[in-house]
Amino acid sequence: MTLLLALALAASAAPADLGYNQLPDARQEAAATELMFELRCLVCQGQSIADSDVSMAADMRRIVRQRIAAGEQPDAIRDWLIERYGSYVSYDPPLTLATAPLWLAPLALLALGLWIARGSFRRRRG
């Protein structure tokens, strides 16, 4: 009977798995959650680590929560994860030579659309 009580107390005293459990401090959890929605799951690719159920996302959530709990700033954590996993992990990749087409393509398509619309309007008037 005492062995069962000791096991129950040990289980309740074990630290929470921060991959699946929230931080006790509401402000820290809010900061962690906001950052988790800005980070892409490397396995699912279409989901943030906050939305994904795979173990890799849980590991990344655990890292984010541990570092937030330790007092690290979200930007520093994001930078560390980008350094570790590459800029793909961020939904807001930095402007580099490799990501320039991602940033410039929408502008080029918008300019092309405006140029086509302008030509269409000119033909209708003339």
Rank of each mutant, 00 (worst) to 15 (best):
D92H: 09
A70C: 06
E72Y: 09
S87P: 05
R84W: 13
L97W: 13
S87L: 10
E38T: 03
D75K: 12
E38P: 03
L104I: 07
T96F: 04
E34S: 12
E34T: 14
S55Q: 11
A58W: 15
Y85P: 06
I82G: 07
D79W: 14
Q47Y: 05
A69M: 00
G71R: 09
L81P: 02
A50K: 13
A50M: 15
L81D: 02
L39N: 00
Q73G: 09
V89T: 07
R61G: 05
P74C: 12
R67C: 04
L81N: 06
L81T: 05
S52W: 01
Q45Y: 13
E38K: 05
D92P: 02
G86Y: 13
L81R: 08
S52F: 03
T96M: 08
F37M: 13
P101T: 00
L102S: 10
R67Q: 07
R78S: 00
D53Q: 08
A76I: 14
Q45E: 15
I49W: 01
L107I: 11
D79L: 15
L104D: 03
R67T: 02
S48E: 00
S52A: 08
A76W: 14
S90F: 13
E83C: 00
R67Y: 04
Y88H: 11
G46M: 08
S52H: 02
L104V: 12
L102A: 08
L102I: 07
M56F: 12
F37V: 11
R40H: 00
Y91G: 05
P93R: 10
V54C: 14
G86A: 09
S90R: 10
I49Q: 01
Q66A: 11
V43M: 12
R84P: 10
V64K: 04
R84Q: 15
V54D: 10
L104Q: 06
E72N: 09
